[in-house]
């Protein structure tokens, strides 16, 4: 076997893949959030629609979007491979299981991941697929014809069912991040009493603030727009 294949199929190499793709997705969450917070501007969706136009036409964004799809797929597929291998390695479960020593999130990363994947599919169908393949009304902003994605989002978030679905999904993502953030650094071999307590604190804050800010978007749009 080639040394690189050997490395990436070893138990440590597999962790490194999970951790690097995870770190990439952690950063994506922040970037995606900053862009989408423009939905909350009081300008009838002008800033957001211009941003959506930029995101769908800029070639650099296009390139990084392919990287993102690859990252998500790799993270999800590798996660499922690990999940099945680990279940097989454990074999029979204990009759009495004491769960006090580990966090809820760390024990259920697989299930949390499955829920996130389901949410991602819904999210992509609702907005990404609609923007790319569906029909979205055109609107003229500063003399430029752009797709009115803002109205699509607003229409979606006027439905209380979707608001609840999004809120629950953010709760799940928060949990997934809660374990994932600090776990990323551990997998990369970065664990030292000098900085690990700080990484853990930042991880807890990140896993709370980012999903909460995302959750604010459907909530605010439902109640005030």
């Amino acid at each position: 076997m080639n040394w690189l294949t050997h490395f990436f199929t070893s138990s440590i190499g597999k962790k490194i893949i999970m951790s690097l793709t995870g770190l990439f997705l952690i950063i994506f969450l922040l970037v995606h959030l900053i862009g989408n917070l423009q939905l909350l501007y009081n300008d009838g969706g002008k800033a957001f629609n211009l941003y959506a136009k930029f995101m769908t036409t800029n070639p650099l964004i296009k390139l990084s979007s392919y990287l993102l799809y690859a990252g998500i797929l790799l993270h999800a597929i590798q996660g499922m491979v690990l999940w099945s291998q680990n279940r097989k390695a454990k074999g029979r479960k204990y009759e009495v299981y004491n769960s006090t020593t580990t966090s809820f999130a760390s024990r259920h990363m697989g299930w949390l991941g499955v829920i996130i994947t389901a949410f991602l599919i819904l999210h992509l169908v609702q907005f990404w697929a609609k923007m790319k393949f569906g029909t979205v009304d055109m609107i003229t902003i500063d003399g430029m014809e752009v797709k009115d994605l803002y109205s699509v989002v607003l229409f979606t978030f006027k439905n209380p069912i979707y608001v609840v679905v999004y809120l629950i999904s953010m709760l799940v993502i928060g949990n997934h991040l809660n374990h994932g953030f600090s776990s990323t650094f551990q997998s990369l071999g970065l664990n030292h009493k000098k900085y690990t307590p700080l990484i853990k604190k930042i991880g807890v804050a990140y896993s709370f603030i980012i999903p909460a800010a995302y959750a604010a978007i459907p909530l605010i749009m439902y109640f005030t727009k």
Binding site: N86, S106, R107, M109, Q186
Partner: peptide, 23 residues
């Protein structure tokens, strides 16, 4: 199996070997 950083090992190790070793 593969390590997923749950920390269960460290918590139950009778000699309190730390996760920093895994890193």
């Amino acid at each position: 199996g593969n390590c997923t950083n749950t920390g269960a090992c460290e918590a139950d190790c009778p000699k309190e070997i730390q996760l920093t070793n895994i890193a």
